[in-house]
């Protein structure tokens, strides 16, 4: 049984068929990349998994529990965190308050404090800026905050949507290093990226999306050598 299993998923925005019956799976401990052009449906898939968008048809099973009928706010406590596109930190709240909201569904105060210390260890800059409001952080720092906030729920899988968007090349490398670290410490990662080269370089397997369908899938390194992928997504 896979950790996350998506079958025949169809999503509509009004009359527009955004996801046209896709199936894929994520195994425990993997980094899975979903790559594809703008409008291919990458973000929609993540939003459907965490319940922000309703599925029209198909199933999403996470640790053998059906997610399509689960309200969005109940999914995080099942062990799934989502770092949304555009980071979406709470700009008017402080870094610390943002992190604490990440632990909203957890009760044990001592454990929460432990988690916050671990996040500060991983992102020392967040510790420096803990009482600053999140809106004053740079894009890269906000990305770190969004990731730290997701880690605060102690997820077994973390969905990341375009973590490199709008960041300087230096930050992009740092963010991808951190994703690998997070994965090594035992968290499964489902990564959506437009930066296909970077995503494929750290992923185990990847799915290539084209207008709501999976066009290609397989081992990430093999996909990197695929002529079609090279031409369309790697700019070679």
């Amino acid at each position: 049984m896979s950790m996350l299993e998506i079958q025949d998923l169809e999503v509509y925005y009004g009359a527009i068929n955004a996801i046209k019956g896709i199936s894929f799976n994520v195994e425990q401990g993997e980094i899975i990349a979903l790559i594809g052009a703008n409008g291919a449906g990458k973000t929609t898939i993540l939003h459907t998994i965490t319940g922000l968008v309703a599925a029209k048809h198909g199933s999403i099973r996470f640790n053998d529990k059906e997610l399509t009928k689960t309200p969005a706010h109940k999914i995080v406590s099942m062990g799934m965190a989502h770092v949304p596109e555009g980071r979406r930190v709470f700009a008017q709240l402080s870094v610390y308050e943002n992190l604490m909201l990440g632990a909203y569904t957890r009760k044990d105060k001592a454990e929460i404090n432990e988690s916050i210390e671990r996040v500060y260890e991983r992102f020392p800059r967040l510790k420096e800026r803990r009482s600053q409001s999140a809106g004053t952080l740079s894009g890269g720092e906000q990305q770190m905050l969004a990731m730290g906030r997701a880690l605060m729920s102690k997820p077994s899988i973390i969905l990341m949507d375009e973590p490199s968007m709008g960041l300087s090349p230096l930050y992009v490398s740092e963010i991808f290093d951190i994703i690998q670290e997070i994965n090594k410490s035992g968290t499964t990662v489902l990564l959506v990226e437009q930066n296909a080269k970077k995503a494929l370089s750290i992923a185990n397997r990847a799915y290539v999306l084209e207008t709501g369908n999976i066009a290609l899938s397989g081992d990430a390194h093999e996909l990197m050598d695929n002529e079609q992928v090279k031409k369309a997504y790697l700019g070679e």
Partner: peptide, 23 residues
């Protein structure tokens, strides 16, 4: 916690849901 949830909802309901807040 409930007050913080209110502040979070007033800023971004979607992100609040991802935190596990019942909007």
């Amino acid at each position: 916690k409930a007050g913080k949830a209110m502040l979070a909802c007033s800023e971004d309901k979607g992100a609040a849901q991802l935190m596990g807040i019942n909007v």
